[in-house]
């Protein structure tokens, strides 16, 4: 067997982290993307900018501030400590929070673009067909935004799998707890275990190729160019 138990642990941890982060982001980003797609408020610009910031910031910057904020001395960390939560840094829960911030634009933007692409016409048509705002959202907007959701899920998942800097800053390198594939590869290389580094790296390459091939295949089938929005 080419993969050690620690390698397998890292793969399992990575898949668990990426699935959970994607699921949470899809749910939480839906109202945000809907609001960003429809609002005329002046807040739209600043909030779009905040959502996109993880795209341009070095992951270490994000990780650094999260560490300060979530640590026992940080404002959020101290509050969480008071209400009985254990500290988030160097824990799986901390990784989930950090990854959600890091992958936020990859989920918000495709969904937001899908909502924009729908426009007002189908929703107005639904309104004249006795469909309430909530009914319109569930039975018109969501089904029409499906390609955007597929892209958002794929990108959010893949991007979380590929993260390194934020994880290192906030999660550290605890086997089976916070040591994801990218860090496992880093450790192998540090220890000059090139064979094991190759195995994991090739797995990651294959994963990236399959995901992106699927993404662009999906884009071709769906006429709407909502895939990845401005991200890719």
């Amino acid at each position: 067997m080419l993969l050690s138990p620690e390698d397998l642990g890292a793969i399992w941890l990575t898949l668990k982290l990426a699935s959970l982060v994607t699921l949470l982001l899809i749910v939480l980003c839906t109202p945000l993307a809907w609001w960003l797609a429809r609002t005329q408020s002046w807040l739209k610009g600043p909030i779009n900018a905040i959502v996109a910031m993880p795209l341009v910031l070095p992951p270490t910057v994000l990780g650094f501030y999260l560490l300060l904020l979530l640590g026992p001395q940080g404002s959020v960390g101290a509050f969480l400590g008071q209400i009985g939560f254990s500290a988030l840094p160097f824990s799986f829960a901390g990784l989930v929070v950090a990854s959600m911030l890091y992958s936020l634009p990859f989920v918000v933007q495709p969904i937001q673009n899908a909502f924009i692409a729908i426009g007002t016409k189908p929703l107005e048509a639904a309104a004249t067909l006795r469909s309430s705002p909530w009914d319109r959202f569930l039975y018109v907007a969501l089904p029409l935004a499906k390609p955007g959701y597929i892209s958002a899920a794929i990108l959010g998942f893949a991007h979380t799998v590929g993260e390194f800097g934020v994880v290192l800053m906030i999660g550290g390198n605890i086997p089976y707890e916070t040591r994801v594939i990218s860090i496992q590869i880093y450790d192998h290389v540090e220890a000059l275990e090139y064979g094991q580094a190759h195995t994991l790296s090739l797995l990651m390459m294959a994963f990236a190729f399959i995901v992106l091939a699927f993404l662009y295949g999906n884009q071709k089938r769906q006429k709407h160019h909502v895939v990845a929005g401005g991200v890719l």
Binding site: K121, A125, V140, P143, L144
Partner: peptide
């Protein structure tokens, strides 16, 4: 309401 372009639900 019948719209100029029909506005059918594409899905």
């Amino acid at each position: 309401f019948v719209f100029q372009e029909g506005n059918l639900f594409e899905h």
